[in-house]
Design a protein around this nucleic acid. Structure first.
Lengths: 234, 234
DNA sequence: AAGTGGTCTAGACCACCGT
DNA sequence: CGGTGGTCTAGACCACTTC
């Protein structure tokens, strides 16, 4: 059962995407929106907050809520957790599975994933292509006691969709540590770059809504094609 | 005049930093906190939300609010807008001003900064050192009609502190686009690296709380020493 | 069934922006 | 000054976890 403020947020978001509101312009006032959707002021404010966190709005006390220049297309958002297929809706995304193993967690991994030593982990290596061009190398470890089954077919598709839709798990939040490194020879070859070229690295620790880690992964992105966007409030 | 929920948030944050709460443990219930601080439930929830957005907590419906593994020290947060001196409290931060010019905005810059062509801009280039080691090259453009005066002395200190404390301006929000590039010869020399070595790039567009851009800057970070942290909710 | 956080309402007052 | 968003309250009901 979806919340009212979420429904209203989705509706307003749709309006924005359809160009109904104009960049730099004021949104209708809160009182106006209360009437329009027959909801209380706090619910209006919650809807606005949702969209403000997505980067659509900024509020100025005493003045109004204004449309913000939002997300440059092609940027991977560091704030949300959309899958790549949603970020690049028009483009063809292909995942080639380099390896898929089932291994027991050693001491290091048990600490990283906050699970007992010996917990079985799926280790997946994928090379992903965007419109035929190598885009990133992804190295993931999934806790098998949470994600009980994976195969090559699933890994060639969207693992996240499988986890949310088929396994019916709710993803909660994530830490992402971004850095830059030189590529080694093998990685460079996969990304069609030269050894020593830069890579943009993102280390993800991904939690269920219960606070349990189910996935730790490292993405090495092709440095020429990838930009990450972080929206900062306050 | 600070808000109640902010004061409570600060108090709880202090407790956490003093080790009063333990990682993975539950925070007192909302009802408990209502009584303790003599505030309404919504105010408690606002305080919790502030800290959740900083990465301290995650909430589980029906269960409680739990302490999260928070910010790895030494990481630069992409969510907040702390100045470097606050991120590395123990370390010595030195800024060497490479250049400081006053230039009129051409067409490109007027569009980027959403200001009229001809608006005067301070262009500041700085090389920053952390404990004596080169850390990043920063290239900034400030809108002079908002930041009316800058000199080398100010630029050697914290420009942000000058803007907030002395000019009494309120910073609102920022876009940060993160990418990776090869260093050219001059940049490499400044950072004591080799030409072609990776750099971690952050392009910032920084707005006042009124939605006006006052600063656009590009940071090129030393790739060996720098990690950025993004916290993702939802 | 009891206890927790999540949503929603109705109303009040305050701080700030514009005129 | 009127209108806007920001804070705060008190109370209600719902969804979920836990036992």
């Amino acid at each position: 059962m979806a919340a009212k403020y979420d429904l209203v947020a989705k509706e307003i978001e749709q309006e924005i995407l359809n160009g109904k509101h104009i960049k730099g312009k004021r949104l209708p006032t809160e009182t106006e929106l209360m009437k329009r959707y027959s909801i209380s002021r706090n619910t209006v404010r919650n809807a606005i907050k949702v969209l403000a966190e997505k980067g659509y709005f900024y509020s100025v006390q005493g003045s109004g809520v204004f449309l913000r220049n939002f997300a440059q297309p092609g940027c991977i958002s560091l704030n949300g957790m959309q899958s790549l297929s949603k970020i690049f809706p028009g483009k063809k995304l292909v995942s080639k599975v380099l390896s898929l193993d089932l291994i027991p967690a050693d001491k290091v991994w048990s600490e990283r994933m906050m699970c007992p030593v010996g917990t079985m982990l799926y280790h997946v290596s994928r090379l992903r292509f965007l419109d035929g061009k190598p885009f990133d190398i992804e190295d993931s470890y999934y806790n098998k006691s949470i994600v009980p089954y994976l195969n090559v077919e699933i890994c060639e598709g969207s693992i996240f969709q499988y986890i949310t839709s088929d396994l019916n798990l709710s993803i909660g939040f994530a830490d992402k540590v971004v850095s830059s490194e030189k590529l080694n020879k093998e990685e460079a070859k996969l990304l069609e770059l030269e050894q020593g070229d830069p890579a943009l690295i993102v280390n993800n620790t991904i939690y269920l809504n219960t606070g349990i880690i189910f996935d730790i992964s490292r993405d090495k992105f092709h440095y020429k094609d990838v930009k990450m966007l972080a929206l900062t409030n306050l």
